Simulated scan of single mutants.
Amino acid sequence: MVNANQPQERQRLLKGIAFAAGLLGSLAFFGFFPGLPHVIDGGAILVSVGVGALASWVCGRRVNRPG
């Protein structure tokens, strides 16, 4: 039997993975990129959450795209 919520569950999982990847990727950038003061402060955390949210939104748009 096919679960009626399967596409929504897949989309939710993919959006969560995209958010985590964006968050961790941008935190790694702020922590290890040469030339930056290797300090994770409040601004870096806010930017990282924003990047994660943007990645999640883009993933959601691509999953819902017709075709």
Rank of each mutant, 00 (worst) to 15 (best):
G31W: 06
M1I: 10
G67C: 04
G31R: 11
L23E: 01
Q8S: 09
V47N: 07
S48T: 08
R61A: 11
S56G: 13
P37S: 11
A55L: 11
A28E: 07
S48Q: 07
I45R: 07
N5S: 14
R65G: 00
A55H: 05
G67M: 03
A20K: 00
V47W: 08
L23Q: 01
S48W: 04
P66F: 04
A21F: 04
N64I: 04
V49W: 03
E9N: 08
V47P: 00
G35D: 04
L27R: 00
G52W: 05
F33H: 11
W57T: 14
A28M: 14
F19M: 10
A4P: 13
F19A: 10
G25V: 00
A53C: 09
V63I: 15
R12Y: 10
A4V: 13
G60L: 01
S26A: 08
V51A: 10
F33Y: 13
A55T: 11
E9R: 09
Q6S: 11
K15F: 02
A20S: 12
R62V: 08
V2L: 12
P66S: 06
A28I: 07
W57A: 14
A21H: 00
G31M: 08
F30D: 01
L14Q: 12
V63G: 03
H38G: 06
G16A: 07
F30R: 00
E9W: 04
E9M: 09
A21S: 07
G31E: 07
L54Y: 09
L23M: 05
Q8C: 02
L13M: 10
G60N: 00
S48Y: 05
A28N: 13
V63P: 04
E9T: 12
I40W: 08
V58D: 10
G43K: 15
L36M: 08
V63R: 12
G31H: 07
V2N: 11
P66C: 00
Q11D: 07
G42A: 11
G22D: 07
F33R: 08
G22Y: 15
L23V: 03
L36T: 05
R10I: 07
A44W: 11
S56C: 14
A55F: 15
Q8D: 11
L24V: 06
G16F: 02
G35F: 01
V58Y: 06
I40S: 04
